[in-house]
Amino acid sequence: MRNFLLIDDHEIVRAGIASVLSELFKPSNIYEASDEATAIQRLKERPYDLIIMDVYIPGTDSFGLMEYIRAQYPEFRVLIFSMSAENIYASRFLKAGAKGFVSKNSGLAELKKAIDLVLNNRRYISSDLAEHLASGLNDKNSTSPFEKLSGKEFEITMMLISGKTTTEISRQLGISTSTTGTHKARIFTKLGVKNLLELVEMGNAFNLRKQ
């Protein structure tokens, strides 16, 4: 019997995915989490054949959660199912260990295809994302400026955009405020912004959602 974990703050989304999984896999156990704390607790309880999670979950560092899953449970397969900008987030989460990225704008058939591929230890990316990644190889100007950032810098960028202070970021990541300040300075330099307002405006321009 397969075990699935759904991490999404919208109950109706979890119910919809659960319905799809129940139809495809009989019998199966489906567990849910609406926030980071609950997700971590669920992860500790049992092994999972597949984890389906959103990028944008209020109060949750989803990128950090993805890295936590990869570090603590490398055998767990993760499929990202999100409304967040595919061209910005997909490559980040795939590099962090996710096996696939599906837009919530995709049809049911596409979601089923992604689930099947990931469960069979294969990767899934949409045709649009594949085209975007391919064009990025040939056109350096076509990629997002956020691609210049390291994983840690991108994580801190998302926290800054969400309104977290240097102290809050340091506490959440378990690093000193001076280290956070150094990361922040590097982020501003790499992105060519002078202050937090410009960073937020750039984030809005590239459809980075506040978390």
Rank of each mutant, 00 (worst) to 15 (best):
R14H: 09
S135P: 01
A185G: 06
K184C: 08
D128F: 00
I80K: 08
A71K: 12
N138T: 05
E32M: 14
I156E: 00
D54R: 13
G174W: 04
S142H: 13
A33T: 12
L50G: 07
E86M: 13
R46F: 04
D35M: 07
K104M: 04
G163E: 04
R122D: 08
S34F: 12
V78T: 10
F25Q: 01
P47D: 06
S91P: 04
V78M: 06
N141S: 13
R171I: 00
N195K: 11
I175L: 02
K164D: 10
S19H: 14
I161Q: 01
R2G: 07
G136K: 04
L94Q: 05
D49Y: 11
E110H: 09
L111A: 11
L111H: 05
R92Q: 05
S91N: 08
L191Q: 15
I12G: 02
T179L: 01
E147N: 09
L129I: 07
L111K: 08
L191C: 15
S170D: 00
L149S: 07
I80C: 04
L133M: 09
D49P: 13
E198Q: 15
G107M: 06
L117K: 07
P145K: 04
T38S: 15
G203I: 05
E11D: 12
T165P: 00
G203R: 03
E11P: 10
A85E: 12
K140C: 08
R186V: 02
D116A: 14
V78G: 03
F146A: 03
S178H: 00
A85Q: 08
L129G: 10
L119C: 11
K95A: 13
G151A: 11
I169W: 02
R122I: 04
S62R: 10
G203F: 00
N29Q: 14
M53G: 05
L133G: 03
A71G: 03
N141E: 12
A15M: 13
T180P: 01
E86G: 07
G181I: 00
T167S: 14
R2H: 09
F76Q: 09
T167A: 13
D54N: 10
R171C: 00
F76W: 06
N195D: 14
D128K: 05
L50R: 02
L137C: 02
L24Q: 05
D35E: 06
S22Q: 11
V118K: 01
N3G: 14
H10P: 02
H10E: 09
V200C: 13
M83C: 10
K152H: 00
M158C: 05
L79V: 02
T38C: 14
Q72D: 09
G192C: 15
